[in-house]
């Protein structure tokens, strides 16, 4: 078996120790955790800056302007530079322009997309027959009918819950409460599903510690 190099062993040790120190926060805050936190934040911020420079500034700004003479790129560049005006109190108001530009573009683009995805598609998907008769067997028809009725009542009751112009009282209040039950059922399912994914992340980290660092995984499995 080929012996791993010094830097490989060193990096595994560093990663393992940093992992354990990060987990130490579960007990309580401590100086080692603070060091790891600062290291993590600093490294990620620096790395992020380098990535933006390499993947955005150079290919999307510098090369088109310098190599291809695409001067239109100067417009977003100037808008971006206006953000830096915040460092000078007298002209700091200029930094509102790029923000207004970004928020305006974002809102304008999201309105039709929201109407399409969150309203029309959902409405069309809910317009199902509460009585299904075209399945192969009577049992399938019954199951599909019940499923559709649950879907229709669920959507309408949740919609009623998010209606803010009427207080949740009386029969209407009970219908809204039904909407809350539907929401909680869906949250429960989502919770379980996501917890499983998180557990798999934990397993990945523990596997790293046992196999790559301590090399005891194979022994434990025997």
């Amino acid at each position: 078996m080929e012996h791993p190099g010094f830097w490989h062993v060193f990096s595994v040790w560093v990663a393992a120790l940093l992992t354990l120190i990060a987990y130490s926060f579960l007990y309580k805050d401590n100086p080692a955790y603070r060091f790891v936190e600062a290291l993590f934040v600093g490294v990620s911020a620096g790395y992020g800056l380098a990535i933006v420079y390499r993947d955005v500034v150079i290919p999307d700004l510098w090369k088109p302007i310098h190599d291809e003479g695409d001067l239109l790129r100067l417009i977003p560049a100037v808008i971006g530079v206006l953000m830096l005006s915040r460092f000078h109190p007298k002209i700091s108001w200029l930094s509102r322009w790029p923000m207004a530009f970004t928020i305006g573009i974002g809102a304008g683009m999201s309105i039709p997309a929201t109407i399409q995805a969150n309203i029309l598609k959902q409405v069309q998907g809910t317009m199902v027959s509460p009585v299904v008769l075209d399945k192969a067997t009577a049992m399938e028809n019954a199951v599909a009918s019940v499923s559709n009725v649950v879907l229709i009542i669920g959507v309408l009751s949740v919609l009623a819950y998010f209606f803010f112009s009427k207080e949740h009282t009386g029969g209407y209040g009970r219908f809204c409460k039904l909407g809350i039950y539907f929401l909680m059922f869906s949250f429960g399912a989502s919770f379980g599903y996501t917890v499983m994914a998180r557990v798999s992340l934990l397993i990945g980290r523990v596997t790293f510690l046992l196999y790559d660092w301590l090399h005891v995984g194979a022994v434990l499995l025997r």
Partner: peptide
């Protein structure tokens, strides 16, 4: 939201009649 709910109810009734 009320308009959407009304459209939903109409669509469900029409889908049901279409099936029956």
């Amino acid at each position: 939201k009320m308009a959407v709910a009304a459209a939903l109810v109409c669509g469900v009734v029409f889908a049901g009649l279409g099936q029956i």
